[in-house]
Amino acid sequence: MTDAAALDTARATIRGLMARHRVPGVTVAVTDAERLLFAEGFGYADLAHRRPATTDTGYLWFSMSKIATATAAVRLAEQGRLDLDAPVSELVPEFVARAGDPPRLRQLLDHTAGAANPLPVRWVLPADAPDADVDAFARRVLARHGRARRPAGGPARYSNLGYLVLAEAVARVTGEPFTEHVERALLAPASMTATGYTPRSDAEDATGYVRLPRPLTPALRAALPAGIVGDRHGEQVALRPFRVAGPGYGGLIGTAPDAARLLRLHLADGTIDGSRVLSPETARAMRTITTPGRPFDLGLGWFRRPADRDAHPAFVEHWGTGGGFWNAMRLYPGLGLGVVVMANTTRAYDHHVLMTALTAAFAG
């Protein structure tokens, strides 16, 4: 049952955070294992046209995409098509190990494969870039950074490159492009119809913003590929629509209610709307934090900060942050709730306070 007063408090909390951190637009969604409980947009998806943020607004997911990648990979493992304990090199020989035991595919999932984590600032292409260009860019990144930085099996060290390698392994074992496999094997069964790897043409996607002093605008233009930085709107600099070059680690674009459907699948131990995508054992294993690390402790995709180990109620989460967008989605298994927040701002805000306020409205 919804606590109306607590929900009003949550709305006030969201608006207060937006004002304090100067966030143009936010969309939130709350789900349990059976249905969407709440979704609402706040502020603006686009400042130039005063287009409001709504539940239909699409945001770049950035690293929240890793949960989709991980889900697709463990689903293939359940089907006997992908051996998570096999060496990475059997499928992706471009990933060169350091001395010691060879990295295993499972270690890409929990960030213990020793992969480097180069800053992906320029790993973007214009929104109209064809899939072939995105794939070619990802291959160049792998060729440049494919040598492991540390021996496999040590503490978890978060790596975008590791999930780029994992996506390549999925593509090679299935014989189909990674994006097509995820869309067919996960997004379609989960009815995530407003989410994919290419910008939508219906003008519902949010414009990403960077809050930046005017004298630093030339530096932003120099840091990003040509054509990405757009016009200034007060203290906010708009980013023109772009694609992330590396769909496995950060390429999804979609809505908060669709992200809540992915949360619902995991809350329901692998099922959604009567369709089973994962076994209960696999879904639970993904959210079981087994590997300490920095800056996160890891499960098979899901993580939490070491500072949150004793949080009550307990949760696991994944963030999705990059140029123009700052998102997070969180599972509270003990409460049977999932919360997602998506915002078109580059700077961090206190998503924990926001999520705590939302769960208070639905945890009773």
Rank of each mutant, 00 (worst) to 15 (best):
Thr193Gly: 11
Arg157Lys: 08
Ala238Lys: 04
Arg221Lys: 13
Ala188Cys: 10
Val182Phe: 11
Val237His: 03
Leu267Tyr: 05
Ile253Asp: 08
Ala143His: 05
Arg261Asp: 14
Glu180Leu: 09
Ala238Val: 10
Gly196Tyr: 05
Ala152Gly: 15
Pro199Arg: 07
Val244His: 11
Asp269His: 07
Gly248Ala: 12
His181Tyr: 13
Ala152Lys: 12
Pro241Ala: 09
Val244Glu: 06
Arg144Met: 15
Asp231Phe: 10
Tyr249Phe: 13
Arg243Ser: 14
Leu220Glu: 05
Val173Leu: 02
Ala148Pro: 06
His181Cys: 04
Arg261Tyr: 02
Arg157Asn: 08
Ala245Asn: 05
Asp202Arg: 14
Arg149Gly: 12
Leu265Asp: 12
Leu164Glu: 05
Arg243Ala: 13
Ala219Met: 15
Val244Tyr: 08
Leu166Glu: 09
Thr207Lys: 12
Asn160Lys: 00
Gly227Val: 07
Arg261Cys: 01
Val229Leu: 06
Ile272Cys: 15
Asp205Tyr: 08
Leu224Tyr: 00
Asp202Lys: 11
Val170Ala: 00
Pro199Gln: 13
Pro280Ser: 12
Phe178Met: 03
Leu161Ser: 08
Leu187Pro: 03
Pro155Ser: 15
Arg144Phe: 12
Tyr249Leu: 00
Ala152Ile: 11
Glu183Tyr: 04
Thr271Phe: 02
Arg140Glu: 14
Glu180Lys: 03
Val277Glu: 12
Leu186Met: 08
Arg140Ala: 15
Leu187Cys: 07
Leu263Val: 00
Leu267Gln: 02
Arg172Val: 00
Pro151Phe: 01
Tyr163Leu: 07
Arg211Ser: 01
His266Pro: 04
Ala188Val: 09
Thr207Ile: 14
Gly270Trp: 10
Val237Lys: 03
Leu278Phe: 13
Arg276Phe: 14
His181Ser: 01
Ala143Ser: 08
